[in-house]
């Protein structure tokens, strides 16, 4: 297995802390390599553990067994402070969006960039770019609480992409989008991948399942992750 670049899961097991050892694992012996320059889609039933896998890849959770490697580094084994620092290379889109309601749209996009030694003027340029990509330029100074569900989701994606992360992990990024914006988001993620990012999406969305922008398809069921051969959609 190639471990030098991208995100790799090696014999990954996960059980929620506090659960009895006899209870079934959420993830069991998961092996996967998510390579740079590709968009990978993980599908599965509700409660199958897709979000959990994403949070493990982001370093928010520690595996019960096995390892996660990022660009040749065993990040899942690192101490918290090193993983926190590594997470500057990660852009996460949460399923529940996790926006700050009393900040404006543009101010939400500032958050990932503040600790990264980026100049104020460059931050403003990046925000302008992301607002245009997300079709939110007219709403830059609106409070987040005034946005629709779809607009907030596009803002959440913009926040994940604003710092040009190496690893992009998106949980149901098109759940509240119409066809036009869903396609636009697909193109956004594909563009990010073409610039060298590792993109992993967890989604039920049929539009993503059938999208040409997705390079690899995985299916999570019964705690096991399987890759579907190229071109075939999972059941």
């Amino acid at each position: 297995m190639e471990l030098k670049t991208g995100l790799c899961c090696r014999r990954l097991n996960f059980r929620w802390p506090g659960k009895h050892p006899d209870e079934p694992l959420v993830l069991e012996s998961v092996e996967a390599v998510f390579t740079p320059g590709t968009v990978s889609l993980v599908t599965g039933d509700t409660g199958s553990g897709k979000s959990t896998l994403l949070h493990l890849l982001a370093g928010l959770l520690r595996p019960t067994a096995g390892e996660i490697w990022a660009d040749g580094q065993p990040v899942s084994r690192w101490a918290s402070r090193h993983r926190d620092r590594w997470r500057q290379q990660v852009g996460i889109v949460f399923q529940h969006l996790a926006l700050i309601p009393d900040l404006t749209v543009a101010e939400n996009l500032l958050l990932p960039m503040i600790p990264r030694q980026i100049s104020w003027s460059r931050m403003q340029e990046e925000i302008l770019r992301q607002l245009a990509d997300a079709d939110l330029s007219d709403l830059a100074d609106s409070p987040t609480s005034a946005l629709s569900g779809g607009q907030r989701q596009r803002l959440s994606i913009a926040r994940a992409l604003v710092a040009r992360p190496r690893f992009i992990l998106a949980d149901e990024p098109t759940a509240f989008q119409d066809d036009h914006h869903a396609a636009r988001i697909g193109r956004q993620l594909c563009t990010a991948a073409s610039e060298g990012a590792v993109v992993v999406i967890c989604s039920h969305d049929l539009r993503l399942r059938s999208s040409d922008e997705v390079d690899r398809r995985f299916h999570l069921a019964s705690a096991t992750l399987t890759e579907n051969p190229a071109g075939r959609q999972p059941p």
């Binding site: 982001a58 928010l60 918290s80 402070r81 926190d84 620092r85 997470r87 500057q88 290379q89 990660v90 996460i92 949460f94 996790a98 700050i100 958050l111 990932p112 503040i114 600790p115 990264r116 926040r159 710092a163």
Partner: peptide, 15 residues
Amino acid sequence: SHWGLLKSMGWTTTD
């Protein structure tokens, strides 16, 4: 919870 969100975006405890 706000700080947890910041940490998920790459803020360290030191930041």
